[in-house]
Write a protein that binds this DNA or RNA. Structure first.
Lengths: 269, 269
DNA sequence: GCTGGACCCTCCCACCGAGGGAGGGTCCAG
DNA sequence: CTGGACCCTCCCTCGGTGGGAGGGTCCAGC
């Protein structure tokens, strides 16, 4: 850089497609410090050579890359830079995937299909499951369930079992909750890696959900809404029965029976 | 609701899959007020009948619907509710579309294609355009440009003109900036609805961008980076020439020549 | 040299939705 | 009557930006 003229913040901002406010903020957080700051007046002066970095910041901000990641990007020259950007790319891809699920769910809500999720009162039989357990949070519920299913089927290799696969889920979705996935087997001897789980018989509120697992909250919404409307209380974790599974059908046609065991039937006259 | 038991905030939170903090917040903002608040102690008590709304809030928050929209949803019973949700759906769809463009751009950045956007110094000839103008902000630049093109082609019906279509864009992207879209025509008589725009001849920094228009910022990044690195100054708005347009090719193959007129060539030895 | 206006400074507040924590009061079963 | 679970309010934090108040600085034109 031969001369490297010094520019005031306003001029520099216009050059780099950033606002004065932004530049001051980036100075504060150490992302892009002015070449020189006048001690007496506090005026910031930027070198024209800083425009390259500033333009990069502007470009990345335009696509909503967080400042922390931009800082990494500026710090990492060469191949590392591509790595940082690739990581950010992956985060964005993941967000898009989540958003598409949300969109799908919203579609279904907006479609005004009030007839969806008809809730009925049923009597669930007692059941002894050969099962695996896992802990998870509300966010990784789907992943944890899928992992359980894989683990269960692996442990059951060779042992006969009766479809459908069933899952038990606490009604309180909190960090560190415990889920159970199991199937009825004829035997009392649980294969290594599994344990038994006994479901008591009793009345339950039940509905059938057709669609992707990401839309299961709709079924719970219907069940819990009904439960509270009738002043009923749950007596245990919710049960899901995977009647049509991803191995057999498209996400749109997955069929899941969901029931919540309740205290007792009251005449709802 | 016959009895409608009153629940403390903690119990109600567990029933509805919301946190106590959230419920207090929703009370503060008026989204979901407790049935009764004890004057002496400030304790909030919720009726079981409120669980329906609370569950709806929880469901919508899970898919990131803003509280304001949730409030509308709760207020709008019946068909209106579907309308509100549909509007939210559309917003989300739009966001996904934007994110996909971002992802695309990030892909290109992460692909480490440093050879992209080779910048050369050229000498641009003087040009007289028959043009239309518009004002816009940084966000609606693309839409405004497309609208200008449509308007221009409509006004030019019957008048012969020379491809490519050209656009003029201020380097300072601010709210209320003015853009120009035009083409060279043989005549001095501008058709109704158009005006003339004269481009002076002179040196310029030029690059060719191949890809969607949403990725044009990459070209500007290269051009402006080079401009500042060499201590050059722009003397006017940037010019874009749409060599391969959306009518002719896929987004990936769109070809645009971008140049920024500069003050004078300096020996960069 | 003086003046006006464009420019710059710092500091505080707002947005959005939630979480964390301090410091203190309340409820109820043992 | 005591302990522990529960509840309260108030304030701070996150990210990134914008707005505005209140005040200093720079420079061109006279």
């Amino acid at each position: 850089m031969q001369e490297d003229e010094l520019l005031t913040i306003g001029r520099f901002a216009r050059l780099c497609r950033l606002s004065v406010k932004q530049l001051r903020h980036y100075d504060d957080v150490g992302l892009l410090r002015p070449e020189r700051v006048d001690r007496a007046t506090g005026y910031r002066y930027y070198a024209t050579g800083q425009a390259r970095d500033a333009l990069t910041v502007a470009l990345l901000r335009e696509i909503d890359v967080p400042l922390a990641v931009i800082a990494e990007t500026l710090a990492a020259r060469g191949t590392d830079r591509a790595l940082v950007l690739r990581a950010e790319r992956d985060r964005l891809a993941e967000r898009i995937a989540r958003d598409r699920e949300r969109l799908h769910l919203l579609d279904r809500l907006a479609a005004d299909r009030a007839g969806d999720h008809e809730v009925t009162t049923t009597h669930e039989p007692a059941l002894r499951l050969t099962a695996v357990r896992a802990g998870c949070g509300p966010a990784d519920l789907g992943a944890a369930t899928a992992a359980c299913v894989t683990r269960l089927l692996g442990a059951l290799a060779g042992t006969p079992w009766t479809p459908p696969i069933r899952g038990l889920f606490p009604l309180d979705l909190v960090e560190g909750m415990r889920i159970v996935v199991g199937v009825p087997t004829g035997t009392e001897d649980d294969p290594p890696g599994t344990e038994s789980s006994v479901l008591p018989e009793g009345p339950a509120l039940t509905t059938v959900h057709i669609g992707p697992y990401a839309q299961l909250p709709l079924a719970y919404h219907a069940l819990l809404g009904r439960m509270h409307a009738e002043g009923l209380r749950a007596t245990g974790p919710a049960r899901e029965e995977y009647l049509v599974t991803p191995h057999e059908a498209d996400p749109e046609d997955l069929t899941t029976r969901v029931s919540i065991p309740i205290e007792t039937e009251r005449a709802a006259a």
